[in-house]
Write a protein that binds this DNA or RNA. Structure first.
Lengths: 166, 166
DNA sequence: TTGCTCCTCACGTCACGTGAGGTGGC
DNA sequence: TTGCTCCTCACGTCACGTGAGGTGGC
């Protein structure tokens, strides 16, 4: 893989230019390359945000929480493939209803090829979501009741109006 | 009802003593009585909190947001029947998934014998909750999948261990 | 010079939670 | 004096939203 080091160094410089960030920083190729796989191509924040459907603020926030640590090229953040995979896991965790603190714990376990949940954590989370779902269902049912009773009320009022004007 | 005014005045003084707040304030009976129904009996914050299963902080917060305006007896808050009915409506609104700002708007409509929802507001809220429910269901399904695949993984690992030690 | 993308503060939002520090009568 | 309930700040939490003000190369 010593060959890759050289190739990636060139690729790093190229992608930096291709990204149009040559003027933001003179890329320290050695540093850019440290986390780079063959075929990796660093992305700037706006592109990552678009690809994952999140805001720039969210990405910076995750970084402030130490969930993401993108490489810096001067002031500019560069997200490599590893960073984007990690972002994917963070967003999965969010969809599963975990807090960022919980996600941080799940990601910082030795193996970080995925969210490492224990059976117990799964069960706890499922129970939490089931309770939440039930509360939502009750609310929906109640709103439907209000909606139909609203019609009844209208009819009642129309009826009494009718009687009154008679 | 002029008779009630006198009776309630005495009752107001009595309840104030019965509540053990005689030492917190010399009850201005006229003011205590202004919002009092026959059979009304003002409650202090801790009793209201217990009855509705909310915290003191929540009650004070609703007041800061102008959702509740309990009578004051010196520094002490007194919640009359009307206040408690209003609190009930606030909590119902919360269960239906409305924000406090929305609830404030729903309560400040001319008729405040209940939350006055329009058909449109009902539909909008139902749609909101349905979306939320769907997201929760998807999360639950995914967690169940992870749970079972976790077992599979365990079995796989046990299998490979077995092969390895063979 | 304008427009674009990037950046860093830093306060705002939502619905409270959580002390800190003080009061007043038994 | 201790214990109880009440009070008012006021900062903390959660996951960002939303400007403000500045940068750097086309």
């Amino acid at each position: 893989m010593a060959r890759n080091a050289t190739i990636d160094a060139a690729a790093g410089a190229l992608t930096a230019n291709a990204l149009g960030i040559g003027h933001f920083c003179r890329p320290d190729v050695g540093r850019i390359d440290r986390f780079a796989d063959a075929g990796d191509h660093p992305m700037m924040i706006a592109e990552v945000a678009r690809e994952f459907g999140v805001t720039l603020r969210a990405l910076r926030f995750y970084e402030a929480k130490r969930l993401l640590v993108p490489q810096r090229c001067g002031p500019v953040r560069l997200y490599h493939r590893k960073d984007r995979e990690r972002l994917g896991l963070i967003l999965t965790g969010r969809r599963l209803g975990f807090t960022l603190a919980e996600i941080a714990a799940l990601l910082n376990k030795p193996h970080d090829k995925g969210l490492r949940l224990t059976r117990e954590q799964c069960v706890t989370q499922i129970n939490l979501l089931e309770r939440q779902k039930r509360r939502t269902e009750i609310a929906i049912a109640e709103l439907r009741r209000i909606y139909t009773s609203f019609y009844r009320t209208l009819l009642d009022e129309a009826g009494s109006d009718f009687r009154r004007t008679e």
